[in-house]
Design a protein around this nucleic acid. Structure first.
Lengths: 220, 220
DNA sequence: CGCAGCTCTGAGGCGTTTCTGAGATCTCCG
DNA sequence: CGGAGATCTCAGAAACGCCTCAGAGCTGCG
């Protein structure tokens, strides 16, 4: 997955610098604008995954900037930052087209969590669990191989693989897998059978057997 | 545009009642669940534009409910309500899959503004929805193929395709489509039939089946 | 009225999934 | 080495999900 691109429109250069570093540490690719005019220009011409807009900006106010972007059909997710924290201010910000509104001062952790939430919306939950060099698409119940090839899994196959992949270092006892993935009444060997199915689809090394203890996720 | 549908999962019946009225006044169509189990069932089978989930719920905790919905490919926007307002609580809620997190007590105005922000659609007001290489003309109920050819859709066909196209990356469960496009009393297989009609008119790949989960818009 | 198109029902069919169980194979330890 | 227990492999039965489509009722129009 490529880095998420963020446009940060903030006139306080000190704060902008700190946020820029914070975002870079989290793996975002950040561009900055220090006034509304410049923010408008970049917002219209560049493509970003999220815009962070300070409400108070020189030249062009943050909310006005936001409105102009929205009327120009820019639908990028927008998080508005502001020192104005009254309910009426927040309502005004949201109704101007913001997707979220965070009041200064804020904790870095919360900003990051809200950014993650905004970024998630466009992926439509296409989150993946790492699976060695491949990945497990949790939304579509598919394994995505490094070259982009997709292998669809049946419901049970998916549940089993997900359980294994959720704790990749753990060794999962048969009984635990049977309880988690299958119904109470199923036979003792159901886990073995489904491990066999997974290995048919994904290759012999997809699941590792730890004799006497259980199974562990392997390399796909 | 039809009314927005909201599922309210809140165990405090007094608050639920008040919110229900508030939402009704604002033109939302609201359903309520008073515990997590019921919320899970409704969330999985119904079709809503936004879910409002209280964090503290009997039977099944709010965040656990949210996680279960997310693992079942429910990508509906979720607003979590909670008395727990620490930064760590908010981060936990957002990372569990919430799109927004509002701390009790809150002002009605802010809740409504945040709901509006969540309910806003990307291409609201547009006259066409993109449909792979083609487009869906919302005014004339026609699909416009790349070469300009037009295919007229019946009312139901159009509603179904529009629902799919509105969130092109999401997987739409059968039950959700049935609730949204067809009357309450229609049979279980009505969605299948109309998907079949769409495929007759637009080609086999117009709608993609994700076995066990639902349908997704494909390439036309 | 008669026709055409739309909506919905329900039945039949087909490929997939799930689960069982049994034989083959492996591994460890005495 | 040999046996016991663990694991693997796989065929088959039943259930399920999904697709297809004919037909009945309805609506609107000429």
């Amino acid at each position: 997955m490529a880095k998420s691109r963020v446009l940060l429109v903030e006139d306080d250069r000190e704060l902008a610098g700190m946020l820029g570093e914070l975002l870079a540490d989290e793996g975002y690719e950040t561009e900055a604008a220090h006034d509304g005019q410049r923010g408008l220009h970049l917002g219209l011409t560049g493509h970003y995954d999220v815009l962070i807009i300070d409400r108070r900006l020189p030249v062009l106010d943050g909310l006005e900037l936001l409105r102009r972007l929205r009327t120009r059909a820019v639908t990028t997710r927008v998080l508005v930052l502001s020192a104005l924290g009254e309910v009426a201010d927040r309502v005004a910000g949201l109704d101007a087209g913001a997707d979220d509104y965070l009041v200064k001062p804020f904790e870095a952790e919360e900003l990051l969590a809200r950014l993650r939430a905004l970024g998630r919306r466009d992926l439509e939950g296409a989150e993946c669990l790492p699976l060695g060099t491949a990945a497990l698409d949790l939304l579509r119940h598919e394994v995505v191989l490094p070259r982009g090839e997709r292998i669809t899994l049946s419901g049970r196959e998916f549940e089993l693989l997900r359980t294994l992949a959720q704790r990749p270092k753990a060794i999962h006892p048969r009984a635990a897998l049977r309880t988690r993935v299958f119904a109470e009444s199923t036979g003792e060997s159901i886990v073995d059978t489904y491990v066999y199915y997974l290995r048919l689809k994904l290759g012999r090394d997809a699941v590792r057997t730890v004799r006497g203890l259980g199974y562990q996720i392997g390399v796909v």
